[in-house]
Design a protein around this nucleic acid. Structure first.
Lengths: 226, 226
DNA sequence: TGTACATCAGTGAACGCGCGTTCACTGATGTAC
DNA sequence: TGTACATCAGTGAACGCGCGTTCACTGATGTAC
């Protein structure tokens, strides 16, 4: 039994926690250089290990990236769940979830890039986060994405118990998610205007979500007028 | 003077339209394999030319991709402008713009990926499509992005001449764009549920945009209640 | 407590590959006279 | 109309590089006796 001193520390022949360290290194490099710019050699060097050592813990590059994506969905679900169970009114919690989403995308760009990069999937297969799930066992990430999405649906139902007129809650949730994702990715690409006087992304999301939800509220039918 | 027979045709020593052919090839490969999967060697081979020939027309790989992005913003602006000047009521035109945006992202994934991929920009620099513009002369794409964004702002003002209460039109436009971008990218990543009974992305955007706009309309102040 | 041994995490060298880019060149084009 | 020549688009070979992956190996660990 050896003491764990940090992901990139090492003492002696055996690393002690190589798998976790590699995942963390991958996450860091993906954040810094993008998914395409991330290399196994860099990760191994940062961790202080030969590139070949990686293959004791992962099938290859793709498997490592998939693991990062999985952890990302896990962490996102955790943060959304935490916001969902925080103090305050349902609406306050709901707003907090949106903030948590944007904060996650900003603070963990490595996770986010691994999670949402378009993968060359098999033709016709729907293996998205809220799709039917892939037949590939290695891709367990979609289930975690579903968890995050379910938190969003749950939050919507709790925040607006009166329900929505003729509209599936999942439809609203999908709109909210799409808006959040759009804001997060535009921001990550440096394509959202920043500066004093301009609304920040948090305000953008808050106002947008409010509008999306109110547009379909049951007790405000006039808001649905064509 | 020689006849032009198609981007990938060639006869004789000189190509005749190599620059355009390379751009088209790059666009195709980026669409098929993603920005990271695109190589100069592939493009040159498709066009029927030595990789070195590329350097007669471009500084290098990055310049070619930048050109594709520029053309993409150009084409997007063109399509949005066309929708903006089409027949029907202002609202019909506005809806058509949203459809045009999603259709563009779907039909031209090569353009879209080149346009919106996060680039490792200089620190603190804001060179996004609606930002202040980069000092780099080569990056003229942002101007074209501004054109597309201006079309959106113009459409909003024409469609809702009564204006929005205490809200800058550009704020609404940004929300609409973010939602469109989110839907488009989730769809491109295969992360939007598809199938019979489920709403398609066009309906998703239409309903979402309606809600976003109505949430801030001037003649419906009740829709803005906190 | 000590020793033999099975287990397995990490080594280090090598591999084949394909990338972006360079360079001196050559062949085609079109214009001046 | 014909010829000399400047221009320049594309050639082909080569480069240095760094990638992901493999393989036989070796060193550390921890357990059985």
């Amino acid at each position: 039994m050896r003491h764990w001193r940090g992901p990139f520390d090492r003492q002696g022949y055996h690393h002690g926690n190589l798998k976790e360290a590699l995942i963390e290194a991958a996450q860091r490099f993906i954040a810094e250089r993008g998914l395409g710019g991330f290399t196994l050699a860099d990760a191994a060097k940062l961790v202080g290990v030969t590139p070949a050592a990686l293959y004791r813990h992962f099938r290859g590059r793709e498997a490592l990236v998939a693991e990062v994506a999985f952890r990302g969905f896990d962490e996102l679900a955790k943060r959304l769940g935490k916001a969902l169970q925080s103090d305050g009114t349902p609406r306050e919690r709901f707003t907090r979830m949106g903030e948590a989403y944007l904060a996650f995308a900003e603070q963990e760009p490595g996770f986010y890039a691994a999670m949402f990069s378009a993968k060359p999937t098999a033709e016709g297969e729907n293996c998205g986060p809220w799709g039917k799930g892939s037949s590939d066992k290695a891709a367990a990430a979609p289930e975690r994405a579903n968890t995050a999405f379910d938190y969003l649906v749950e939050a919507l139902m709790k925040t607006y118990p009166e329900g929505f007129q003729n509209v599936d809650v999942r439809f609203i949730a999908l709109e909210v998610w799409a808006l959040s994702h759009g804001i997060a990715t535009l921001d990550a690409a440096g394509q959202l205007p920043k500066g004093p006087g301009l609304p920040d992304k948090y305000e953008l999301l808050r106002a947008g979500v409010l509008a999306l939800v109110h547009g379909a509220l049951k007790d405000r039918p006039e808001a649905k007028v064509q």
